[in-house]
Design a protein around this nucleic acid. Structure first.
Lengths: 353, 353
DNA sequence: ATGAAAGCGCTAACAG
DNA sequence: CTGTTAGCGCTTTCAT
């Protein structure tokens, strides 16, 4: 930016060869082009002496590849742990020698369109478009005309690959964690499908997790006693649990649809003098930092943010030209993060058996 | 990326003017260059018809300005709420018509050097270098040779502007919040300067917050009863508070050095049946999401992440050529986020007054 | 007021 | 095996 930039021409001159020779050597195709060993060394030395660094924008103009990709989202950096998506995307990009433009639309479509143009004008090699949480939503139309991948965005009309967490399996995993500890009775759900006026029918994550939970429990001939539908925020977890208890319910296990709900549930349980996991086992979703901070630490099914970002970029960069071809969705597993919030059920009255 | 790119030449051709004329019009300098109104309209129309978009990499090659900047950090995306730094940087960049490369080094110096090169090779107009938390640390040497700004990184030898939170004032603010509610006695500190074997002498944030706390309390002729030095994590907040209580201390107010410590303190207080804020008032630092999730919500002095990012980019882009000139540090205010964790002290025995 | 021409730094035919 | 040449798409003197 300050020092007088050293160019390939300088290197060639100093090495006493032509620019093309220098170019081939520098791009590692010296052998392939059968440049003499002597010439190669001269070029390499000259480059090293001069501290030569190729001007990638100039190269891009020629090759029309910038080794740059864009990550655009409605609120990826803002939302706490989803910064992991960036992290995963970055690692994958770096592994492919690419750099990452990151941008946020705050849900504003005008901003979104602008940002995409801005990236395209800079000739990015592809775009990853991510929504904060999984949902059915149309992706910007332009994206179908360029190399792109969707994260969490289930646009049914898009031909771009879609990367989403495997919420259904996640639901099964959560239920199995409980069942494995012997919990088949007194299981309550906090949060449910998120079926509230604001989101009638529930959220994608809620709906699929609940399907998973129910299918898995059915396997054991068990089921959920009650599912409390509400927003996935601490205050509602607190409220739901408090009401449950006030209504005379005595849950042995709580499935909270995310860690924040579980956090609220912990508070309510604590106030009632009920201990986790001795009195009530709790399993949750997200595996955020919160889960590890809680006492006892929370067993939680992780949202694979890092993987989502990484797989998206990998898919984007490894994608064959794929025009009009079917692009299969990628379901990313949600692993169980074990905490101390599940206790084995003590078979009361069966101790003699 | 797919459609045959339309170039300025195409536009000029269709408008029946030369490439230079088209260029002037498209860059908004038509009037200045006194291009005829008729010609201007023709060019604009042709561009619109063709859906012309300038190739910014080509332009960059000519102008040697890419209108991109790099944001590089040890763990910016990963750490939960610091994603706000990206957010602020992004907003400022966008306002200046720039795009943002984001990268993370994970503390690895080799990766760091590589990332910086990678950005420089792509001719970024400047680099923002951020460390996760404020500390004395040498910034990469290359940065002094390019347009750059430091966030949280107090490199005494660097000539780049340094943007840091005003921790000292933050400390005063926290103490004042307590004092304003009448708390001048029974004030305990959890976390302190973070003066533990791993970080002898404490952390920059801890040291300066504590200076602020003490200076402010002194104003009222008050002081801290005891400061418990420990790591800023929930488990230590829990441990510290538990020990305090076991040792017979009866704090009326707790100053926790961050929200996670306060979280741990809440847990310990709750187990002892002590209510916040009736029995103990609590004030903290960070103003993370956690603060609002806690019951009662936590009064906390905010780390101005968004502002740090925004100011850094603004400084970078508005910076005059500044060579060797003194670059003043920017201290960013830490505002108080009021919660419900501070109760006014009831002047026992003075009710008759 | 407009056009011709040069060149940013690099790659890639094509000659030699 | 190596050098010459011609652009990539754009900006910017310099003539006209």
């Amino acid at each position: 930016m300050n020092a007088p930039r050293v160019t390939l021409a300088n290197v060639a001159l100093r090495a006493g060869v032509s620019r093309s020779t220098a170019s081939f050597v520098m791009s590692g195709r010296g052998a392939e082009m059968r440049i003499s060993e002597a010439a190669q060394q001269k070029v390499l030395k000259a480059a090293a002496d001069l501290g030569y660094r190729p001007n990638l924008t100039a190269r891009s103009l020629r090759t029309s590849k910038t080794h740059t990709i864009g990550l655009i989202s409605d609120a990826i950096a803002t939302t706490p742990f989803a910064g992991e998506v960036i992290h995963g995307a970055l690692d994958a990009a770096l592994a492919h020698g690419h750099l990452l433009f990151v941008a946020e639309t705050a849900g504003n479509e005008a901003v979104e369109a602008d940002l995409i143009s801005e990236m395209l004008d800079r000739q990015v090699d592809g775009i990853v478009y991510a929504t904060m949480f999984t949902r059915y939503q149309k992706a910007p139309a332009v994206l179908s005309k360029v190399q792109s991948v969707l994260i969490n965005c289930l646009d049914p009309t898009s031909s771009s690959p879609r990367i989403v967490p495997d919420e259904y399996q996640g639901g099964r995993t959560a239920a199995r964690a409980l069942a494995d500890a012997g919990h088949l009775n007194g299981i309550y759900v906090i949060g449910g499908r998120h079926d509230i006026p604001k989101t009638p029918g529930g959220l994608y994550a809620g709906v699929n997790r609940m399907r998973g939970v129910e299918d898995e429990l059915r396997t054991y001939g068990a089921g959920v006693v009650l599912s409390y539908e509400c927003e996935y925020e601490p205050a509602f977890g607190y409220k739901a649990t408090t009401e449950l208890l006030s209504d005379g319910h005595r849950p042995r296990a709580l499935i909270c649809l995310n860690d924040r709900l579980a956090f609220g549930a912990y508070q309510a349980l604590g106030e009632r003098g009920m201990r986790v996991p001795e009195d009530v086992s709790v399993v949750s979703f997200d595996a955020s930092d919160l889960a590890s901070w809680l006492r006892p630490s929370l067993t939680s099914v992780a949202l694979p943010h890092y993987e989502l970002g990484k797989i998206a970029v990998t898919t984007l960069l490894d994608a064959p030209v794929r025009k009009g071809g079917e692009s299969k969705d990628v379901l990313v597993p949600m692993p169980l993060h074990e905490g101390d919030s599940i206790a084995p059920v003590t078979p009361v009255g069966q101790i003699q058996e």
